[in-house]
Amino acid sequence: MHAVTVVLAVGGLWCVVALGGGIGVVAGVVLLALAWLLAPRPGRLPEGRPVLLRADAPELFALVDEVAGAVGTRSVDAIVVDGSINAAVTSYGIRGRRLLVLGMPLWEILTPEERVALLGHELAHYANGDIRNGLVVGSAVRSLTVWHHIVQPLPHATGLEMIVNALYVLPRLLIGGWLILLIRLTSRAGMRAEYLADRLAARTASTPAAAGLMDRLLITEALGVWLRTEANRAALRGPRSTRHATDRAGELWERLTAYAESIPEHEYERQRRAGARRGHQVDTTHPPTHLRRTSLLAGPSETAAVTLQAHRSDMIAAELAEPRTEVARRLLRGALDD
């Protein structure tokens, strides 16, 4: 995939230098422009979402540092807080700085032990050499995703745009097939990385905490429905009610936590059995959740290497107060982050 970009760049330079003239320069510029368009680019900090640096949340970063030390890797350089019911790690900038994306809805419903397990799982992707986050494979997947987005059909196409859409069909099929092939080729390594991350999460926060995190992942779909319902209710009350609701956005987290705590144990058991039948997965890059949980419980029982005391939880909550309010306002406006 990267060789295509290199060939285009070299071919463009050759056309400009060797051929010269008007045709050579035009052809070279076109090839160089394509190489620039298709070249992998370093990630950037997300826009429109709260970004925390060490000075903004020293206690949260201290916890992340401690977890990173427990799993055997270095810590992150920035933390982004958003409205996704998820968490992830990635990189940004030319120097490959590390970024933790923390979904506030998921963070809010977890116990302190499960929060440590979540951090341990995500940081473990750096420790176990997950190739999907590496420079070569990770940038290839990102570039192919961008390519595929560029050649998507233009909506509500006019006459000329219909011709462009028709010309996009073959490139879209080739790029889509290429992307699927790359994902398939790395899927086993990705699945293995998830199991290893679960094991490191158990060593960091204890096996019960890591298993509890697996259970919480079973109700993410229900949490998403609940959040969309709250956003719809705020919209139906009208603009004034919506603004008033966003002023009290902190209440959203209290109601969400109460909803999660109201889910009885037998519902989790039902979800486990249903997941075993239909193969519940967080997404296509993760193994089935019930297999991840079974693997954890079948292994040796681990004790917590990192604990989150009540006073530290309170300090971290204070540091997250402003971002969590901003995210709640976005959620009430219907901006549920993917």
Score class of each variant (00 low, 15 high):
residue 43 G to M: 03
residue 48 G to Q: 10
residue 48 G to R: 10
residue 61 F to A: 03
residue 14 W to R: 12
residue 30 V to Q: 01
residue 18 A to M: 14
residue 43 G to C: 07
residue 17 V to R: 15
residue 45 L to C: 09
residue 32 L to Y: 06
residue 21 G to F: 10
residue 29 V to S: 11
residue 22 G to F: 11
residue 34 L to P: 05
residue 45 L to S: 09
residue 25 V to N: 10
residue 61 F to Q: 02
residue 27 A to C: 14
residue 48 G to D: 11
residue 56 D to I: 02
residue 37 L to K: 08
residue 31 L to E: 01
residue 37 L to Q: 13
residue 48 G to P: 03
residue 38 L to E: 06
residue 32 L to R: 03
residue 45 L to T: 09
residue 54 R to F: 01
residue 59 E to K: 08
residue 34 L to G: 05
residue 40 P to S: 09
residue 34 L to W: 10
residue 24 G to T: 07
residue 46 P to Y: 11
residue 32 L to D: 03
residue 44 R to A: 10
residue 54 R to V: 01
residue 38 L to H: 04
residue 21 G to M: 12
residue 54 R to G: 00
residue 34 L to V: 11
residue 17 V to S: 13
residue 11 G to Q: 12
residue 20 G to P: 08
residue 49 R to G: 06
residue 35 A to E: 04
residue 29 V to I: 12
residue 12 G to E: 06
residue 19 L to I: 14
residue 21 G to T: 11
residue 35 A to P: 02
residue 36 W to Y: 13
residue 33 A to W: 11
residue 15 C to E: 11
residue 37 L to M: 12
residue 35 A to D: 05
residue 56 D to M: 06
residue 48 G to I: 07
residue 31 L to N: 00
residue 13 L to G: 14
residue 55 A to L: 04
residue 24 G to H: 04
residue 56 D to N: 08
residue 16 V to P: 03
residue 27 A to F: 07
residue 26 V to A: 14
residue 22 G to H: 09
residue 38 L to D: 03
residue 40 P to A: 07
residue 33 A to P: 09
residue 12 G to Q: 07
residue 47 E to M: 13
residue 13 L to K: 08
residue 22 G to V: 15
residue 21 G to P: 05
residue 36 W to R: 12
residue 31 L to D: 00
residue 45 L to D: 06
residue 30 V to I: 12
residue 56 D to W: 01
residue 39 A to E: 03
residue 60 L to Y: 02
residue 61 F to G: 02
residue 48 G to F: 09
residue 54 R to N: 01
residue 28 G to N: 04
residue 54 R to A: 02
residue 35 A to L: 07
residue 35 A to Q: 04
residue 44 R to C: 05
residue 13 L to N: 07
residue 36 W to F: 13
residue 45 L to K: 10
residue 15 C to P: 02
residue 53 L to S: 02
residue 31 L to F: 05
residue 26 V to W: 06
residue 35 A to H: 06
residue 46 P to W: 11
residue 26 V to C: 04
residue 44 R to E: 14
residue 63 L to Y: 00
residue 52 L to D: 00
residue 57 A to S: 08
residue 29 V to W: 07
residue 59 E to D: 15
residue 18 A to V: 15
residue 38 L to S: 07
residue 61 F to M: 07
residue 18 A to Q: 14
residue 13 L to A: 15
residue 48 G to V: 08
residue 60 L to T: 02
residue 50 P to G: 02
residue 58 P to V: 05
residue 30 V to R: 00
residue 61 F to K: 02
residue 28 G to I: 02
residue 23 I to N: 04
residue 31 L to P: 01
residue 16 V to W: 07
residue 15 C to M: 14
residue 21 G to L: 11
residue 32 L to F: 09
residue 43 G to Y: 03
residue 32 L to A: 08
residue 54 R to K: 09
residue 20 G to E: 12
residue 40 P to Q: 07
residue 61 F to R: 01
residue 10 V to W: 13
residue 32 L to K: 04
residue 12 G to C: 10
residue 38 L to T: 10
